[in-house]
Amino acid sequence: MELDDRPLLSGLGFCLRAGDLVQVCGANGSGKTTLMRALAGLVPLADGEVLWRGRRVQRQWSRFRAELLFIGHRLGLKTGLTAEENLRLVAGVKAPVVARDWRQCLLAVGLGAAARMPVWQLSAGQQRRVALAQLAVSPATLWLLDEPFTALDPQAVAWVEAQLQRHLLAGGVAVVTSHQPLSAHLGARQLELNVQDVD
């Protein structure tokens, strides 16, 4: 895998079965985010392939994307809209979500009154909570969460872990990048990325 024509990751391979969780670890700049973006199909692979249900993702983009929830560094929230509008009008575009009570969802993640404020007025942690509130209702099978715990307080971290557990028990799979260790009961597999120095 390359970034700016510079090899970044190589010799990487892993397989996820229903209920599997992989935690990607590695130093800053080791390529965690790029790996996540490659898995989501945002960055092309220089070599190798990503398979989904046994078939190459390139041959089934719309099916793969329908089963994918990707929350990256940039949260995908319109800062001019409120939390509620974001979930309805922005997150709603991405996934084929049936009509649901988004407010319930925001209450669950601890954003009651803040749900009606424009997102730019919220703190970094609250903004991330808005994005992560999708976890509660996402029908996706594959969750790709890039640093989901950044700026979250312990309560919110516990909530996210509970959502992960529910997702895994329901047969979903997830890849999470994080520097902090996940709760042991999630049974995460570690994937260590090493910085490659090629000079």
């Binding site: 199909g41 945002l42 990256g72 319109k78």
Partner: peptide, 12 residues
């Protein structure tokens, strides 16, 4: 800048 575009790119 807000990542909304990224979400559209990974949407079905």
């Amino acid at each position: 800048d807000e990542g909304v575009l990224e979400q559209l790119l990974v949407s079905p």
